[in-house]
C-alpha cells in the first residue's frame, strides 16, 4: 500500500522521484519505482485521473518531458562525444550520468559540469574509446565554460612589463586549460563540423537520428595541451606547449610568477638557455589574447 502524500513538500518529493526516474527502452514510465513500489499506485496516491488518462499516464507525461528535455540539452552540449560513441552508447551514458548527477542548477547550461570526472570513474560507458571519450568531454565542457564565462579587464602591455618574480596574476575565467591524452582537438572540431553539415544537409535533428560510432582516422595517443578561449565572442582552441600549459595552470592556482615559471619547466627538455625566449613569446601572446588579468581582491585576504 502506497502512503498518500498530503503536504506540499511530500507531494513535490513524490512527484520529483517519479519524474526523475529513467524511462523504459520505449520511452514509457517504469512500472516499478526505485524501491520496488508499483508506479500505478504511487501515481494514484496523489494524481487524479480523468476520463481519458489514468493517474499513471498523467504522471508519465511529466516523466517523459523531463527526460526528453535533459537528454536533448545534454546531447547538444556533447555532440562530438555522441558521434565518437554512437547514439546508442551515448544514450546509455547520458541516462546513467544524469541519474547520478541530475541538474542542481537553475540553468541547463551546467548539466555537464560533472561529466569528465564521472566518465573517468565510469569507463564502462565508453568502452575501447574511453580515453578519447574523456578528451572529447573535456573539450566540449571547456567550450561551454569558454563561451560565456566572465572576461575581466586584461593587464595592459605596460602592466605586464612591470611584473616581477613575486607578482601574482589571474587568468581570464573564459580561458580553459586542457591536458588531453590524444591530439583530440582537431578531431572534435571536425566532428562538430560534420554534425552541423549533416543536420543542415539532411534536415536531421541530430538528437533523434540513430548513429553508429563514427569511423575515426587512425591516430596515436600523444599528450596534448590546449587552451579553449574566447575572442570576439567566439570560442577557439589553441595548442600549447606542455611548459606553457603548466605555467598557466600554476598562475591560475595563484602561484607567484617565479614559482609558476619554475612549475612550468619541471621535467622540461628545453635547454635552460632558451627558456627566457619562450617565456617572452608566451607573455607576448597572452598579452595579445588578453588572457592575463588581476587576481580578485579576495585572493589577497589571508585569514
Amino acid at each position: 500500500m502506497t502512503a498518500q502524500p498530503t503536504s506540499l513538500s511530500e507531494i513535490q518529493r513524490a512527484m520529483a522521484d517519479a519524474v526523475l526516474q529513467p524511462l523504459t527502452a520505449d520511452d514509457s514510465m517504469q512500472a516499478t519505482g526505485a524501491r520496488g513500489e508499483r508506479m500505478e499506485q504511487v501515481a494514484a496516491s496523489f494524481i487524479a485521473p480523468n476520463m481519458r488518462l489514468t493517474a499513471f499516464e498523467r504522471l508519465e507525461i511529466y516523466n517523459r518531458q523531463y527526460w526528453f528535455r535533459v537528454l536533448d540539452s545534454f546531447a547538444e552540449d556533447f555532440a562530438a562525444l555522441r558521434t565518437i560513441l554512437g547514439s546508442h552508447a551515448f544514450h546509455r551514458l547520458s541516462v546513467a550520468y544524469l541519474t547520478t548527477h541530475p541538474s542542481r542548477s537553475f540553468t541547463l547550461r551546467n548539466l555537464g559540469a560533472h561529466l569528465v570526472a564521472w566518465l573517468i570513474a565510469n569507463p564502462q560507458f565508453a568502452g575501447r574509446r574511453h580515453a578519447l571519450a574523456v578528451d572529447a568531454a573535456r573539450m566540449e565542457w571547456a567550450f561551454v565554460e569558454a563561451f560565456d564565462n566572465a572576461e575581466h579587464p586584461p593587464l595592459t602591455s605596460d602592466q605586464i612589463a612591470k611584473l616581477d618574480a613575486s607578482s601574482r596574476l589571474a587568468l581570464q575565467p573564459h580561458v580553459q586549460l586542457l591536458a588531453l591524452a590524444y591530439p583530440a582537438d582537431n578531431l572534435v572540431l571536425e566532428l562538430h563540423r560534420r554534425d552541423e553539415r549533416q543536420a543542415g544537409e539532411a534536415g536531421l535533428n541530430h538528437d533523434n537520428a540513430e548513429l553508429p560510432p563514427a569511423r575515426l582516422p587512425q591516430f596515436r595517443r600523444r599528450s596534448t595541451w590546449v587552451a579553449a578561449h574566447r575572442v570576439d565572442n567566439s570560442v577557439y582552441y589553441l595548442r600549447l606547449r606542455r611548459e606553457e600549459y603548466l605555467t598557466l595552470a600554476a598562475i591560475r592556482q595563484g602561484h607567484a610568477l617565479a614559482d609558476a615559471l619554475e612549475a612550468g619547466f619541471i621535467g622540461s627538455p628545453l635547454p635552460v638557455s632558451r627558456r627566457p625566449s619562450y617565456v617572452r613569446q608566451w607573455f607576448a601572446r597572452w598579452a595579445e589574447l588578453e588572457w592575463i588579468c588581476a587576481p580578485p581582491l579576495e585572493s589577497f585576504i589571508t585569514s
Binding site: L8, S9, I11, Q12, R13, M15, A16, V19, L20, F46, Y62, Q65, Y66, R69, V70, S73, P102, S103, R104, S105, F106, L108
Partner: peptide, 15 residues
Amino acid sequence: GSVDGTYTHDLLPLP
C-alpha cells in the same frame, strides 16, 4: 520545478 536543490527544468503544476 525544483526540490531539495534538484531541478527538473519543467513547469510542474501545483496542488
